[in-house]
Structure formats: C-alpha cells, structure tokens
Design a protein around this nucleic acid. Structure first.
Length: 475
DNA sequence: CGACGGGACGC
DNA sequence: CGACGGGACGC
C-alpha cells in the first residue's frame, strides 16, 4: 500500500517496462504506436508537448506490459528514423518516476541478473540454466573466499537487456532472479529499489523471444533434486532450418496430450524457426523435451527443445521447485518404471510411445475421499510439519493425499530442505489419528506407506508432527 | 537431525 | 541535446 492509489504509479510496474524516446518534434503518437506496438503490448504512449503551443518537445514515453518488450523495442528501434527527413531517434529505458534522476539508464544496469541457486550449482550449471534466454557473457557463483564453497547466489551477465529481462520474467521463480545492482563504490546495497512485486507474466504472449537458437546439449543432470531447468507444460522448439508447422505438429503430437502448437513469427510475419508447444500435462512436456531435444528432424537439422513459461498461475508459495521434483520423478518412471523407456524409433508417426501417467494416488490403504482445496486465503488453523526421507514428495501428490484429511489450504515445501508444511484450515480425520507433538501413529505410518507405494522408489518413512500455530501470523 | 517465504560481488 | 499528462475506482 504505497503510492499505488495513484493510477500513474504502475508506469513503473513492472520495472523497466517504460521507454524514454527522443525524437524529432514532428513525430506523432500514431507513428510511435505503429512502430512500437510490434514489440509487445503497448499500454500507454505519451508525447510530451508544450503546454501553450501544444507542440511536441521531441520527447515521448512508451509504456509496455513487460520489461522484455520494452527492452527489445529499445534494442531494435534505437537509431531508427520514424519518418522521412527526421532525425534518428534515441531510445532508453525510462527512469522510474520516483527516482527523480534524468540520467540515461545504461545497458550495464540492465544486462546482469542476480539469482539464488542451489549450493551445488557450478558456474556451468548456471550457464546452462540461463542460456535459454540469451547469450551469456559470463556467469559467476558467489563463493566464500576462504572455503571456496558456494553461497547459493550467482550473477549472470547477458549481452542484451532484453535477454536479462526475459530471464527474469521466465526463469523458474525459485531462482528469484532480479536485475543486479551495479557494482559500486559504496558497498551498501540496501536501496529500497527492489521490493517491488515482480510481474507474474500471467498473460505471456508468444512471439517476442529474441534469443538465438540455443543449441543445447540434451544433457542435464537429474537426480540431485534441483534440476536446473524450468519445468512447465509449454515447450519452445528451435530449428536452424525452416520447418513447417505441420511437421512440428505431427512430431510433437506423437506424445499424447499436445493441445497447442504454433510457429512463432516476427513482427513481419516471418517464421523465426521456433514453435511453441503446449501439453495438457507436465509429464507429456517433460517427456517431449527429454525425447525430442537434440532430435534431428528432418535428418541433419537438430531441434532444440526447452521449457518456457506457460503462464499458469503458480504463484502460490509452493513454488516451482516442487514441479521440478515432479519432473525428476517422472523421469525415473520413464527410465525405470514398468511402462518402460521405449524410445521413439521413428518420426513416421504411428508408434505412440507409452506414456508415464501423471502420478495419482494408488494405494491399498483406505484413504478418505478426495476433497476440494480450501481457498488460498483461508485462515490456516493447523499445520503439519513433515520431514521427508530421503527427499520431499511432489506437491501434487501431497495435495492429493492431504486434501482428504481436512480442508487443505496449502502444501509448502521449504526449498532445498527435506521438510515442509501442510496447512489446513479445518481438520477432519487427521486430528483424531495424530497426536499433537508426538511422533506416531498408525494412521501416519499407513499414510507414509501409501505415499511410498504410490511413488515407487521414493520412500517416505518420515514423521509427521502436528503443529499448533499457523506460524508467525499475529493473532 | 531437519524449520518459517530467504539476496550481493576482493576496488 | 532530451524527462513526466490525462483522466477519475467504487465503497
């Protein structure tokens, strides 16, 4: 509740989504709209005019919905002439309205991001994780100088502001990517700059990604819990050679669950050698990426497949790390599970590969019936503290199980730890079968067994505690 | 055993 | 050189 009452306050939201243009005075709002709207959703255009004469002062502001759109427009339009006989325009990211400064915002300030990463991440991991958004100049992990161990933080420098913006918008939220504060003399980095809510890019529109084909080696390590990739139902397919949409369609349609396939086009309607694919479920997308990234189609043309943000609302505090665990588990089902790891042999399109099903509760333990989740803003009345061994179960499974015992508000897994909280606003069955504060019980161990059963090799021999307080909420 | 929504770089 | 308007939620 800052100064958000003023409608104009969201000219700075999300940060760096507004451009400052210097043009000839003859350039009109209509010309600007025509030339800038191809880069994204233009929310506002304002040509600054003299109060008396109404003549343009040769200065304009263009507000985009997203920072990446503004940055791409800046990169593409800086130095262009918008009309015959007019001077080339200058385009900068506008200073935020609150800053008061009129200094040009340098690319230096827009190309380096600051991220939280697993302690196990190497600089190569960091690079691999963030290269889908653009060419990386360098990636460094912040380490303890004496011990050399990672502090779980890193910097990634891109070549272009739009690439950094895309990384911030689209990378897994657990990375908490933000623009890095420029390295300065005064070491205090405690500006009030970054407390702004990030855009949740819920309305991600395709078609603006400016990154070159990131020919990525289809190798990534699964197994250390924290997979470096964003995991979603949406994939981006990149091809060096032009491939018809129908070809991509039939290829990716081999995997059940494809619900959307569309070539990406630039503002002139030309194919960019990229297509967006969406599946109806995570498992299909994970499987598709695993099987088709690096696949030569047509022969000699390596396809690159990466996850892209599907714009789904995953802003619940659960975070996406849990999704990565889901994916890791699906991998293990693909590789080890009974449904087998049948490779797709051909692109000829009839042999549908057997698919791992989305994990569902399958147990001989009698579970109460599935109930609807409580609304996310319900007051949490009880929390269960769960310790997982060896590693947390996927959130959707936990939700599926625990929603049966009460009115489930949220499953929260503490990132990077083997613990989590089950938050409920009403307890029905659990309350009778679990004893406060004590390690137990028949019901809990059955629950544990059923969890283990349904997750194959993951063993949940953890203990479940009852917590009394919904934590840190003042009464 | 374990934990509460996380943040900064040798100039 | 080249920096900040217009319009007016809905309890």
């Amino acid at each position: 509740m800052e100064d958000y009452n003023r409608p104009s306050s969201y000219l700075d939201d999300p940060p760096n989504s507004r451009l400052f243009l210097v043009t000839s005075k003859s350039i009109t709002e209509d010309i600007i709209r025509e030339r800038f709207s191809p880069f994204g959703e233009v929310q506002d255009i304002w040509v600054v005019k003299d109060k008396q004469t109404k003549e343009s002062k040769g200065v304009s502001f263009v507000k985009f919905a997203k920072s990446s759109q503004a940055c791409t427009a800046m990169e593409e339009m800086h130095g262009k002439c918008l009309a015959e006989g007019t001077k080339p325009i200058k385009v900068f990211i506008a200073q935020s309205r609150s800053s008061g400064s009129h200094r040009d915002v340098e690319d230096e300030e827009l190309t380096r991001i600051f991220v939280m990463i697993p302690k196990t991440f190497t600089e190569d991991d960091l690079k691999e994780t963030f290269k889908p958004y653009g060419d990386i100049e360098y990636a460094i992990v912040i380490k303890n100088k004496s011990t050399g161990e990672s502090k779980g933080l890193g910097y990634v420098r891109y070549h272009k502001p739009s690439q950094a913006a895309k990384a911030i918008e689209n990378c897994d939220k657990t990375f908490r990517a933000i623009l890095a504060e420029p390295r300065t003399k005064n070491s205090s980095a405690d500006n009030e700059y970054f407390s702004n809510q990030r855009s949740d890019h819920a309305g991600n529109e395709p078609g603006l990604s400016a990154y070159p084909f990131g020919a990525e080696s289809g190798s990534y390590a699964a197994g250390d819990g924290w997979n470096s990739d964003l995991i979603t139902r949406c994939l981006m397919v990149s091809s060096r050679a032009p491939v018809a949409q129908e070809q991509i369609y039939s290829l990716f349609d081999l995997i059940p669950g494809m619900e959307y396939c569309e070539m990406q086009r630039d503002q002139y309607g030309f194919s960019k050698g990229q297509a967006m694919i969406r599946y109806s479920n995570l498992g299909s997308a994970v499987y598709a990426k695993e099987k088709l990234n690096g696949f030569e189609y047509p022969p000699g043309n390596r396809l690159s497949v990466t996850f892209i943000d599907d714009g789904e609302d995953r802003t619940s505090p659960v975070g996406k790390m849990a999704m990565q665990l889901v994916a890791a588990q699906m991998m293990s089902m693909v590789w080890n599970g009974p449904s087998g790891a049948q490779l797709m042999k051909t692109t000829a399109g009839y042999a549908t590969p057997s698919m791992p099903q989305k994990p569902r509760v399958q147990t001989d333990v009698a579970l109460p019936s599935h109930k609807k989740l409580a609304s996310p803003d319900s007051v949490v009345k009880e929390r269960l503290f769960v310790i997982f061994n060896p590693s947390p179960l996927p959130v959707d499974i936990l939700e599926d199980v625990f929603c049966r015992f009460g009115s489930l508000v949220e499953v929260y897994l503490v990132p990077g730890r083997n613990v989590g909280y089950i938050k409920l606003c009403l307890l029905i069955h659990l309350k009778r079968s679990l004893t406060r504060g004590r390690e137990l019980t028949d019901a809990a161990s059955k629950l544990a067994k059923s969890l283990s059963d349904m997750t194959h090799d993951l063993d949940m021999t953890g203990r479940i505690f009852m917590m009394t307080r919904p934590h840190s909420y003042r009464q």
